[in-house]
Nucleic acid binder design. Sequence first.
DNA 1: GTAATCCTTGACGTCGGCGTCAAGGCCAGG
DNA 2: CCTGGCCTTGACGCCGACGTCAAGGATTAC
Lengths: 142, 142
Amino acid sequence: MRIGELARRVGTTTRTLRYYESRGLLPARRDGNGHRTYGEDDVRLLEQIRTLQDFGFELEETRPFVECLRSGHPAGDSCPASVAVYRRKLGELDALIGELSAVRAQVGAQLARAEEAMAGLAADAGAAPGGPEPRCELRGAG
Amino acid sequence: MRIGELARRVGTTTRTLRYYESRGLLPARRDGNGHRTYGEDDVRLLEQIRTLQDFGFELEETRPFVECLRSGHPAGDSCPASVAVYRRKLGELDALIGELSAVRAQVGAQLARAEEAMAGLAADAGAAPGGPEPRCELRGAG
DNA sequence: GTAATCCTTGACGTCGGCGTCAAGGCCAGG
DNA sequence: CCTGGCCTTGACGCCGACGTCAAGGATTAC
């Protein structure tokens, strides 16, 4: 099969496939016209790459999986190098989720504080409590 | 104060301050030599920007906070526009944390599956169970 | 013949938030 | 006078994973 069909089958673009080839990740044979030619194996390799990409893996991180498949293993994660990437990624995910959760808590607290303060100011100004849009745009210093 | 001192006080670089100015976020007066001049107010503006940047806010998202401070409010989040950014960011954070948690679960499951499979293969091959590094690099197709 | 569709390589554009280098001005200390 | 340190503007570099355009070759359908 040629590059357009492979791209369609896996749901990506020819540009992406050429990019992968340029990175040495998905080399292709050529036919008489110089056109890239792929087989069913390449579908599996490409699906492996795309799955991991969807998980947020960097392209380089998919390489062990691809090489694992290419070496004849039934699954891309049947090799120690792939498992090592999984583990590293889990650690990164946990760290990132932790940081984001901390930020979320901080932002949530700031939001609550700000809303409280604005409600207080609105009450001080004699406005109806619970007003949806306290107007403070041009107050204070002009 | 001049740009170097402001940068040092807030823990950033002169390049960053010039960049903020180029974005219209932190304009500066000039002295007789054409050098940028800042006041204490600018310290507060800059601290507000950096705090939000540390939270992962994009530069444009800090603009409402800066304008709020500049309009005379005691806090950058005392304005509806700032609060709106908080809320939007909370939503984005929740969505992102949710996605990352889903990915984490998937990767965790894949890791468990892969380890199980490798342990099974190692046992089939007569290796010691629990071996730290199953060697499957050059098996299968050569 | 010519339009449509597929393919090729090469190269520049994108996005954000700066880093880094170049070339020069101004001023203080010794 | 020279050195060093601060400042100026301008402009290119970076990272990742491609998008997009240019210019051309090949095959097929009509």
